[in-house]
């Protein structure tokens, strides 16, 4: 049972990674590791910034 649950969690984590759901967690890791002085963006700020930057930096999607 635990193995199934673990497998499911692993899959959800992978799927989340592919979808880009873990972007904030990665940002926090980067922020902590690079030793910035100022506090990191909050989750809400981060995602706002995340999509707003795409406004001026569009990414293609293929056919």
């Amino acid at each position: 049972m635990n193995a199934i649950l673990e497998g499911f969690r692993g899959f959800a984590r992978y799927f989340g990674g592919v979808m880009g759901a873990d972007a904030y967690a990665k940002y926090l890791e980067h922020h902590a590791a690079s030793g910035h002085e100022e506090a990191p963006m909050t989750e809400r700020e981060f995602w706002r910034d995340h999509t707003d930057r795409q406004d001026s930096n569009p990414q293609g999607r293929c056919c």
Partner: peptide, 17 residues
């Protein structure tokens, strides 16, 4: 690396992405 556009991504995840 900037935590936003340049982010090291696990190879299996990046493959799917």
């Amino acid at each position: 690396a900037d935590g936003k556009d340049y982010v090291r991504t696990d190879r299996n995840v990046l493959f799917g992405h």
